[in-house]
Design a protein around this nucleic acid. Structure first.
Length: 797
DNA sequence: GGCGCTAATATTTTT
DNA sequence: TATTAGCGCC
């Protein structure tokens, strides 16, 4: 240690403000960094990691950093690498899910957790797979699909997993017949996952936690390894993730220490830093627990908190607007963002006739900004609450010739053909994967029908073997037609042949091409004259390209083995490819550099995917009560506050210019709906908004014609445009006729009602009036339901 | 056993 | 509006 070099590496502290600097250099006790929007938290995280390595001589392999998306992880890694060089590659920077997959693949084989019996090649079931499996389970249990919808049951199961409650807990805690049914669905669902050697998203976390609890020595191993744990977006962690962090850090773990009584040495706690902003917590609906961040100081008695309130992103006008809106949330720690970037432009407001009019406004405004202010379309982002809202923008942008890209929505990996192809690959790796196997059994059509499938399933049941095993032994299945048997054997032959490619360690892209070829999948698509199938062929080509890129340019993926990364021999097997594909999110697909050939392209996305991003120009659209805040949140304080946080996130994405807009009429699944202005608009300080057009200018005569406005001047509408407009008009007509036919029951709290499927109930409360009236009704064992009276089949008694 | 039609039904947000 | 499940017919 030289005496001349007392100053630490100032390069790493350069350009940081005081609190940022304190966060980077902090050592010892657990640290919470409350990072307001745009306050430079990514900078703090990357500099701190570099600081740990450079100044505090931490081994890069002892660092675990958790981010929300894979893209954020890749970026962070890259930025740290820029600071400290290649050795940064050994760090674990990944999402919770990726980190858990990596741990489980290494440890799970042979362990008795989650019912036991998992092998390290387990499949990862996404939402669609889970739903299919749950549908099968509910059918097996003979539960009425009307009353027990797969999505509702899954949501319930997911809640349980996020709270680390296993099926046994659920069974024990069931308070009524309804919950008993749910619990038994949970039990069976887990059993079938286990039989399929598969884990769903929530299992990845829960199972890891369970493993750490059941096997303290494994836990201590990882704790010994990860001496520094950093967690980004801490406000969006759920209980299971929270518990995982505690397990890994060894902070406040008294209750588990008994497990170590066997003599294993307790590793001292790791250093923990979490970064988050309670005002940006927008994932409560999927189990995120805002208390994790609010109670941090209680959880860790000696914890320190650092506040980052200076914003480096937006103008003061934008921040004032955001501060004003979020100020309406109760029970939050006050925090006011400030900026020295000056006031900048006022916010532009616009009231449109309908969704298309709104899109037209956005399109014209983009033109104007490009012409008059030299902005590039790539500087512009359009946000909306729900994916369905992108349609109007897409149609109008196509007509006006404005290039755009939609982030999210119908995702590439959710397309049928892509899922089919991936199902083949998954089966090759894990034949126990029943959902995937059944999916491809008769895709493309090869004469293995429902009946044959049932025979095989029966055989599997009776012989207590996997579905695949039963297929192999299909000749033992009673009642199976010879023709079906032949087809099954041909199928089994194809799969086995392809499996030998996997065994031979062929590249993923090569295997994939063989799959498409040998299965006859491609041939079937090419033979079809449906133009949609051409797109499918293209998508499959794209998937092959993705696989090829993966094979040829082995970017160290989220779960690449660090040793291999170091040696430059990253694994690129089929299993690795599948894993990469299983854990990608929407936000991961946003191209890195908005310049280059993308500079003319406007970005469209939901507010949720916008989190963590920033754009010079932002359009926040659909600001209507019922759209944003969303219908389902109206009348529920916590949900409404989450919507408000979502608004806060949207507002704070804007750097220079912000536009807010709403539509008087919006067509929601067919019928036109009239929505009042969003309450969030009322919460904007009046002097900050420059209203280009207000409702009063429009309303005198009403605007019943959806194709009004300047539909024509933009040139002749495309065929699709015309069809959509006319059918919309027809539907509006039909809806107008149908409406008086159904009378909306006038209900008051205390009224008794009869519902077609829920039975007798008592009205708890009613919100809204007329068409928008929503009643909370207690149906006893069925629970309390919130029903839109316009549609709900309820009768007042 | 397969295909094509009709009808119902759904729309929050996503790792 | 768009998908999907179920049903009936070949």
């Amino acid at each position: 240690m030289s005496t001349t070099q007392v100053t630490p590496d100032s390069r790493l502290l350069e350009g940081l403000n005081d609190p940022q600097r304190a966060a980077v250099t902090h050592a010892g006790a657990p640290l919470l960094v409350v990072a307001g929007a745009g306050s430079g938290k990514t900078r703090v995280l990357t500099r701190r990691i570099a600081w740990l390595i450079d100044e505090r001589k931490a081994h890069p392999g002892s660092i675990l950093a958790i981010t929300f998306t894979n893209k954020a992880a890749a970026e962070m890694k890259e930025r740290v690498e820029d600071l400290v060089g290649k050795r940064a590659r050994i760090m674990w920077v990944s999402t919770f899910h990726s980190a858990c997959v990596r741990i489980l693949r290494k440890e799970i084989a042979g362990l008795d957790i989650g019912g036991g019996g998992f092998k390290s090649n387990f499949s990862i079931y996404d939402a669609a797979d889970s739903k299919r499996l749950m549908t099968l389970v509910l059918r097996d249990l003979d539960l009425d699909p009307k009353r027990y919808q797969p999505s509702a049951v899954l949501h319930w199961v997911s809640d349980h997993k996020n709270e680390l409650r296993d099926p046994d807990d659920a069974v024990k805690d069931a308070k009524n017949g309804f919950e008993e049914a749910y619990a038994s669905a949970y039990v069976n669902y887990q059993r079938r996952l286990r039989e399929a050697n598969a884990l769903d998203f929530d299992d990845l976390i829960m199972t890891t936690v369970q493993m750490f609890q059941a096997f303290p020595d494994i836990r201590e191993n990882y704790r010994r390894r990860f001496r520094h744990v950093l967690v980004d977006e801490y406000q969006d962690t759920n209980h299971a993730q929270y518990s995982l962090i505690h397990q890994l850090c060894g902070q406040s773990l008294e209750e588990h220490d008994e497990a170590l009584a066997g003599g294993a040495e307790r590793v001292p706690p790791s250093e923990l830093m979490v970064v988050g902003d309670a005002d940006q917590s927008i994932y409560a609906f999927r189990g995120a627990d805002i208390r994790n961040i609010l109670d941090f100081e209680q959880d860790f008695p000696d914890a320190r908190t650092i506040l980052l309130e200076q914003n480096y992103r937006s103008t003061q006008t934008i921040l004032n607007a955001a501060n004003a809106v979020i100020g309406n949330n109760r029970g939050r720690t006050p925090k006011r963002l400030w900026s020295d970037a000056g006031d900048g432009e006022r916010i532009v407001g616009f009231v449109a006739d309908d969704g298309y009019d709104e899109a037209r406004f956005v399109s014209e405004e983009i033109d104007r900004l490009v012409d008059e202010h030299g902005l590039r379309p790539a500087d512009v982002a359009v946000f909306y609450r729900t994916n369905a809202q992108s349609r109007a923008f897409e149609e109008v942008f196509i007509r006006t010739g404005q290039p755009y890209k939609v982030v999210g929505g119908v995702r590439f990996y959710e397309r049928r053909e892509v899922r089919d192809a991936l199902a083949y690959l998954r089966v090759l790796v894990n034949t126990a994967d029943e959902v995937s196997l059944r999916r491809i059994l008769n895709t493309p059509k090869r004469g293995i029908g429902e009946r044959a499938e049932a025979c095989v399933a029966a055989l599997a049941d009776r012989e207590r073997v996997t579905f695949w095993e039963a297929l192999v032994r299909a000749e033992e299945a009673p009642g199976l037609a010879t023709r079906s048997l032949k087809n099954i054997q041909a199928f089994v032959g194809i799969i086995q042949e392809l499996q030998s490619m996997v065994a031979a360690d062929e590249r993923p892209d090569v295997i994939l091409e063989s799959v498409l070829e040998r299965s006859g999948y491609l041939a079937e698509l090419e033979a079809s004259d449906d133009p949609q199938d051409d797109t499918r062929v293209e998508n499959l080509a794209e998937l092959v390209a993705v696989a090829r890129e993966f094979a040829e340019d082995p970017q160290p993926g989220p779960s690449a083995d660090p040793a291999e990364v170091e040696a430059g021999t990253v694994a690129v097997g089929l299993g690795d490819f599948l894993e990469r594909v299983a854990l990608v999110a929407d936000a991961d697909q946003i191209p890195d550099s908005p310049d280059g050939d993308d500079s003319g392209v406007v970005t469209l996305m939901t507010l949720h995917t916008a989190k963590g991003l920033e754009f010079p120009v932002v359009f926040l659209t659909g600001l209507e009560d019922g759209v944003f805040p969303h219908q389902r949140s109206l009348g529920d304080q916590p949900e409404l506050e989450e919507e408000r946080r979502l608004a806060y996130v949207g507002l704070t994405r804007a750097q220079q210019r912000l536009h807010v807009s709403r539509a008087l009429v919006r067509s929601a699944w067919g019928a036109p709906v009239h929505n009042p202005a969003s309450r969030f608009l009322d919460e904007l300080p009046v002097d900050l908004v420059d209203w280009r057009r207000t409702a009063s200018a429009q309303t005198q005569w009403g605007r019943p014609d959806l194709s009004s406005g300047q539909g024509a001047p933009l040139g002749s509408p495309t065929a699709t445009g015309r069809r959509n407009f006319s059918s919309a008009a027809l539907r509006a007509d039909a809806a107008a006729k149908a409406k008086p036919a159904r009378e909306i029951p006038q209900l008051d709290p205390g009224d008794r009602v009869l519902h077609d499927s829920f039975g007798m109930g008592t009205v708890v409360s009613v919100e809204g009036a007329a068409e928008k009236a929503v009643a909370s009704i207690d149906f006893g064992s069925e629970g309390v339901k919130r029903l839109l009276l316009r549609y709900a089949p309820v009768e007042k008694l």
